[in-house]
């Protein structure tokens, strides 16, 4: 598997794709999202795994997103996600609400190749009434025990930013094993990395435990500081000042256009 350029990686996402994305501080693919904006992708159906942050708000603001399934949208310490709120109020974004473990469970069902999985809790939440694809059934192994069933969910494309990748397409995510579940469940996985890893990640017992096998990975591009303004594991901290600047600018249409021009459209990476 050869490394590709960031723009070529972004070109692999078709308009209208169901795209799974991890949130801030969970190896979020921020440089990749900026490349998607430059590519002018349209009609994305985003899946926040299990919630959404800067990347999601940016893609919504840039007009790339038709719908969003997520358990919450929140950026930085303030929590404000201005473009998401604006699009929802304007009726230009279709939102499907979930709860974090339900999204994990739907992906785990796809990972196992089974059509559904049960989940405890959730009963009594109005989420269920707004999810015709979720069903409450009687536990077939016990009487008088209602339980929620969730359908398998297999995203067309998953994208995240990992630490490094080797020439076999193995990628290192450390302890963030939810990325493995996303890759296992998705039909195609595109990854950006800080750097190339010489040799094989699977040759080293300590690295292998935090590695996702290249069998799941379609393509990799180098994007140094590719999670910025989010942080990345023990590599670098989140840029809280930039997230605050983003949240401020994104409150108005002109401010957001200014942000795009300054940090996204004219940038090379």
């Amino acid at each position: 598997m050869a490394f590709v350029a960031l723009a070529d990686l972004a070109a692999r996402v078709p308009d209208g794709a169901l795209l799974a994305i991890p949130p801030d501080n969970s190896l979020t693919p921020a440089a990749f999202a900026r490349a998607l904006v430059r590519r002018g992708v349209r009609g994305l159906r985003l899946l926040g795994v299990p919630v959404s942050g800067y990347v999601c708000d940016l893609l919504i603001g840039a007009g790339c997103v038709a719908s969003l399934q997520t358990s919450a949208v929140s950026i930085g310490e303030t929590g404000l996600a201005p473009r998401f709120a604006r699009a929802l109020a304007a009726g230009t974004l279709q939102v499907t609400d979930a709860t974090c473990p339900a999204i994990h469970t739907m992906l785990q069902a796809a990972e196992k190749g089974v059509p559904f999985m049960p989940l405890r809790g959730v009963l009594g939440s109005d989420l269920i009434a707004h999810r015709p694809d979720w069903k409450v059934v009687e536990n077939p192994f016990a009487s008088g025990d209602p339980i929620l069933l969730l359908p398998a969910l297999s995203p067309e494309v998953a994208a995240f930013h990992a630490v490094c990748a080797d020439d076999e397409g193995n990628v290192y995510v450390g302890r963030r094993r939810e990325l493995a579940t996303i890759a296992h469940a998705s039909q195609r996985t595109l990854v950006t990395v800080e750097r190339h890893f010489p040799g094989s990640l699977l040759d080293d017992e300590r690295m292998a435990a935090g590695t996702i096998s290249g069998v799941y990975i379609e393509a990799v591009a180098r994007a140094p500081r590719g999670a910025w303004p989010s942080g990345l594991l023990d590599e670098y901290e989140a840029d809280a000042a930039h997230l605050t600047e983003y949240s401020k600018l994104a409150r108005s249409d002109t401010g957001f256009a200014d942000y795009l021009a300054r940090y996204v459209t004219d940038a090379v990476a």
């Binding site: 358990s71 919450a72 929140s74 109020a89 939440s125």
Partner: peptide
């Protein structure tokens, strides 16, 4: 007013 979303509350509150 839109709030952030339910996070894991629907599950954690019961378990």
């Amino acid at each position: 007013a839109r709030f952030p979303g339910s996070f894991g509350s629907a599950f954690m509150y019961l378990t």
